[in-house]
Design a protein around this nucleic acid. Sequence first.
RNA 1: GGAGACGUCGCAUAGUCAGGUCUAGUGCGCCACCCUGCUAAGGUGGUAACGGGGUAACCCGUUCGAGGGUUCAAAUCCCUCCGUCUCCGCCA
Length: 429
Amino acid sequence: MIDLKLLRDQPDVVRASQVARGDDPALVDAVLDADALRRSSLAEFEQLRAEQKAHGKKVAQASSPEERAELLRHTKELAENVKAREAEAGAASARLDELLLQISNVVLDGVPAGGEDDFVVVKEVGTPRDFAAEGFEPRDHLELGEMLRAIDTERGAKVSGSRFYYLTGIGARLELALLNAAVAKAVEHGFTPMITPTIVNPEIMRGTGFLGAHADEIYYLGADDQYLVGTSEVALAGYHANEVVDLSEGPLRYAGWSACYRREAGSYGKDTRGIIRVHQFHKVEMFSYARVEDAAAEHARLLAMEEEMLALVELPYRVIDTAAGDLGSSAARKFDCEAWLPTQQRFLELTSTSNCTTFQARRLGVRERVERDGRSEMRAVATLNGTLATTRWIVAILENHQLPDGSVRVPEGLRPYLGGLEVLSPAGA
RNA sequence: GGAGACGUCGCAUAGUCAGGUCUAGUGCGCCACCCUGCUAAGGUGGUAACGGGGUAACCCGUUCGAGGGUUCAAAUCCCUCCGUCUCCGCCA
């Protein structure tokens, strides 16, 4: 939820953001109208309510039954009136909320306008291998995974349907190594590791902004009216919901380890081979609660940590500044790190870090107390998230570090997490 | 799953049976000031959030786990839900 005061005071800023995202700027004016209506009907209700309370007090103090009866005659009518006005004010407020919830976070200055293809490349790091020069055709991650007996998509499909898989043997160990390396990285940077719930209540899912335009991406458990999370960001954002947090010692930093579930509705035929786009995977996710003034610096910090992880597994990648239209509804700015995928000759998103400013915190009621002009004041905090590692990284690691015989060199940074193993070798080799 | 108890202002509690000076009392903690020669004690005042109005002092409204209902009036009565605890049953 965006700040209503900002929308009132600087509607043009919000309109510009809507335009940059390709959303409807007229929504801003609809909110302004609804807000005016809410305020006038609320004032009416409150005035009547005050009158009613004053009358009620007189009834209680009535000295005789006659006086009491006399007073009661007036209050009955008043009560009906109050009830009606209250309903009006409530409806106006609900209408305002409904409109306000449709407005995505206001994008930050510098975010490129436009859609999915209008990103700006911030930098490219590392050089993709020249397999032609090395004299062999690279195998794709699934072929490698099957040779290594690391990935089994056939049985995944048999048991759970398409886009499911088993990681077996060295595949399972590789994922654990990766995630453990990510947790170690998080701890090294002062993040508190967390193992989080993956089923959450509706208000938490709604608060993180995932029930908007892309609600059909989310698994819903109808029998319990709960949701399976697509990332531990949800559980970590909800962790401090309706709390007043203390950020005087710096941001609160968490690293969530969880399974992630995504329906991948509308992606039929896209990335169908292997484990690039799957319904269930694991992820270590960073999540920070920061003061608004510190949010941009914290965002840079999360991005730097993601790059450290990519360096650890020795992958060539680029960093992109996502365009406004491709931001989630909660994000005000987003950077993705994309690793080079040799067999597809394209970049594949491995990490994504978003600065959600106060958008999520406002919905979830995460606030802090700050001193301003000598008096204390409550205000929403900023939330940020970023990926440290996911199952998908296995794709890029296998492909980029493969050798001619189908074995795969283990990047040095991962070896400590694999008992010193230097090469993954095909079964029977 | 069954039976019961409970959920009040940061924490602890009073208030709920018998609806109306509850504008939610008290203690602790915290803040300010006062007093006091001394690591103490005492005194006075303040001490929530959200929304609306106002330059401001301040005023008004909402909130007693959540949501409904009864009533002129609900912390208090009724219903539903959520959570915590105790006991029982079942299960890894």
